[in-house]
């Protein structure tokens, strides 16, 4: 029987372990955002994700690796959402989304990729202190140092300090990206 305490662990076939609480906290936002691609009502999305977490726990089967666990979540969430849409009278626009999703495995896979990528970023940003997070989000909204200082009511120098830390979290030196695609010119700066 799985212990429901905060330390409860799920063993995978390859010997790795997933801490249930860590996994829940790290992926709950991504899974909800994934469900939101199908269903507009955030409360329904939360219900769907909760249900899938429950069935994950109930299954008690051994997943071979963490990919299989995530694949289980994304597929189950998609199926539950489509099921929900099928059985509910919804506004025309949701039905349009549903139809679109239903037809394309491609867009499903792309969506999974997006959530995985943004989940990494989200969990990394979450390690920053509250003010650092706010500064970073405003940087992403293309605000200048002065604008950020005014919005958050802090000194411009404080903004700069936070910015320096934020850049460690989020790679901004996109020259590096250049390197990634064309690995030959060795003289380009490398961060």
């Amino acid at each position: 029987m799985v212990n429901t305490s905060r330390d409860s662990e799920i063993k995978l076939g390859n010997g790795e372990k997933i801490n249930l609480k860590d996994f829940f906290t790290a992926y709950y936002p991504a899974f909800n955002s994934f469900a939101a691609g199908y269903i507009a009502d955030p409360a329904v999305c939360e219900d769907v994700v909760q249900e899938v977490f429950i069935s994950f726990w109930e299954k008690q089967k051994t997943f071979p690796n963490v990919y299989a666990v995530k694949a289980f979540f994304y597929t189950s969430i998609r199926n539950s959402c489509l099921d929900f849409l099928k059985h509910t009278i919804v506004e025309e626009k949701y039905r349009a989304i549903n139809k679109n999703r239903n037809e394309s495995t491609e867009s499903f896979l792309e969506e999974v990729l997006r959530k995985e990528a943004y989940s990494e970023i989200y969990n990394e940003i979450n390690k920053l202190p509250e003010m650092g997070k706010n500064v970073l989000l405003l940087i992403l909204r293309e605000k200048s140092n002065e604008e950020i200082a005014t919005i958050l009511n802090i000194a411009v120098n404080t903004v700069k300090t936070h910015k320096a830390r934020a850049y460690k979290v989020l790679r901004k030196n996109l020259n590096d990206l250049f390197l990634l695609l064309f690995p030959f010119p060795k003289h380009l700066p490398h961060s």
Binding site: Y74, E110, L170
Partner: peptide, 23 residues
């Protein structure tokens, strides 16, 4: 098969996420 594709999407997504956070 679709499950191979899903694993591929998960893998690529997490690579991109790691790259964008410099990890």
């Amino acid at each position: 098969p679709e499950h191979t594709n899903i694993h591929e999407s998960i893998r690529a997504g997490s690579l991109i996420g790691k790259y964008l956070t410099g990890k």
